[in-house]
């Protein structure tokens, strides 16, 4: 099977997601082409999308300026898979509780930005995730926490009883960074399950 993945590349850790997608595709036996999306026109031809980590204020601004925002909403409304990590999770949320971020409102959660504090409070820790056998090496960098989830949202992982990984329909969002380690199980779970 030949598929096309798009990594939204207006800002953030894009090449790490490209590498993770390529590892996942190999593990799942899928022939994958990865596009870096910096302007409008590419998203409609993508079978799956990734919204990377970065700064949510900058990413959300550029998605509007570059007219990519409405294309991502269309991708999700059509039921196509999307993985959003850290800043990406904030950008897809219904309510970022911060007027500086224009969110896409395609995931029914409200978010507490930088909930863990400053960079000196960032950390890595093994995290049990529903659907994965062994704990996942989770890297939290100035990470958001999820305050509340809507009825359609399934919690996949929690940190001290607050959700940090969720799924709703074709969208999976994590407040940590699965792309920073060599473990590609979360990319496989979020993006490739429906194609295998």
């Amino acid at each position: 099977m030949t598929l096309t993945a798009g990594v939204i590349a207006v800002q953030g850790d894009v090449s790490e997601h490209v590498a993770a997608l390529e590892r996942s595709a190999t593990a799942c036996g899928v022939d994958l082409t990865v596009q870096r999306v910096r302007t409008a026109g590419t998203v409609p031809s993508c079978d799956m999308l990734v919204l990377p980590g970065g700064e949510s204020t900058t990413i959300s601004d550029l998605l509007v300026t570059e007219k990519i925002a409405s294309e991502i909403v269309g991708h999700v409304e059509a039921g196509n898979p999307l993985l959003a990590t850290c800043a990406g999770l904030i950008v897809v949320s219904r309510d970022p509780r911060d007027e500086r971020v224009h969110t896409l409102d395609c995931l029914d959660i409200s978010v507490d930005r930088n909930a863990f504090g400053r960079q000196r409070d960032s950390f890595e820790a093994p995290l049990p995730i529903r659907g994965l056998e062994r704990p996942f090496p989770a890297v939290f960098i100035r990470a958001p926490l999820i305050d509340s989830v809507g009825p359609s949202v399934e919690v996949l992982a929690a940190w001290e009883d607050r959700p940090v990984a969720v799924r709703s329909g074709s969208v999976v969002a994590t407040s940590f960074h699965p792309e920073l380690t060599h473990d590609s199980r979360l990319h496989e779970l979020a993006l490739f399950e429906q194609f295998s």
Partner: peptide, 21 residues
């Protein structure tokens, strides 16, 4: 107990989030 702060992964990871900015 297994939570680790200030590792090379966490520090270099912060810088990676600035890319393209």
């Amino acid at each position: 107990e297994e939570l680790k702060r200030g590792t090379e992964l966490v520090k270099r990871g912060f810088a990676k989030m600035q890319k393209g900015g």
